[in-house]
């Protein structure tokens, strides 16, 4: 078990190291998400009521669409250098490759969200720095990473991958986006923990199901 975790961490850490050097993925995710937030501040009259109404939806839609940009790039890099095959040559179960890549994408999204959330709080004048937001963000980006890693691997060898990935990814993560939007809406409207807990339970179920199912499917899509 400890060996497996070490392998998963090695893959995730490697992705992070490459990102520190290339600055391709996090900059793309954060930049795209910030752009969407800024555009919406001009499009909507952001008084307090409107900000509470549309803010959560804008935030998570921006993160979901921006995440696709990062997902595409995260796997394209492995395929361009044939390094995915290098990973496949290692004497490890291929679900560990999946978990390692998902960890990398999780870390990218987490860092991007650390940039996006403060800007969102300022632009929409909403208080989001509460531990509940940490839980919402954590559960949502786990689900994004779980589904996104699988579909990014599936679409990476397809010629029209930039089109294919959103078509596969967005319908599947829609329940998770809804969960994130609803629980964030509860948070910014000052509702209690018990109000949002059912949404968070849904997110936990989504994450567990998709991590297990995706890890299983991933092994098969790696091979021709």
């Amino acid at each position: 078990m400890r060996d497996s975790l070490a392998v998963v961490w090695s893959i995730g850490r490697k992705d992070l190291l490459l990102e520190v050097r290339n600055k391709e993925i996090i900059v793309a995710i954060a930049g795209f998400a910030l752009l969407v937030l800024v555009i919406f501040t001009f499009a909507v009259d952001l008084n307090q009521a409107n900000a509470r109404l549309v803010g959560p939806g804008v935030l998570w839609a921006a993160v979901a669409f921006a995440g696709i940009v990062g997902l595409n790039r995260a796997f394209a890099l492995e395929v361009e250098g044939n390094t995915l095959e290098g990973l496949m040559l290692a004497p490890i179960s291929r679900d560990l490759i999946y978990l390692g890549k998902a960890l990398g994408i999780f870390l990218f999204l987490a860092v991007a969200l650390m940039v996006v959330l403060p800007v969102f709080a300022v632009l929409f004048n909403l208080i989001v720095f509460r531990w509940e937001m940490l839980a919402i963000s954590f559960l949502t980006i786990i689900g994004f990473s779980a589904v996104g890693t699988l579909f990014a691997a599936m679409s990476v060898r397809v010629r029209a991958r930039e089109v294919m990935l959103p078509l596969l990814f967005l319908p599947v993560v829609t329940p998770l986006i809804m969960t994130a939007v609803e629980s964030t809406a509860h948070l910014v409207n000052g509702r209690s923990w018990s109000d949002m807990s059912q949404w968070l339970q849904l997110a936990v179920a989504f994450d567990v199901v998709f991590l297990v199912v995706s890890a299983f499917i991933f092994q098969h899509i790696l091979e021709d």
């Binding site: 070490a6 250098g81 490890i92």
Partner: peptide, 27 residues
Amino acid sequence: GSVLHAPMLYSDMTVRENLMFFAALYR
């Protein structure tokens, strides 16, 4: 141990970092 057509290395990592990474995968 396999050496196939492509070197399958991370071009933005050093040789040592590449070998350390794969050594971790090979435990």
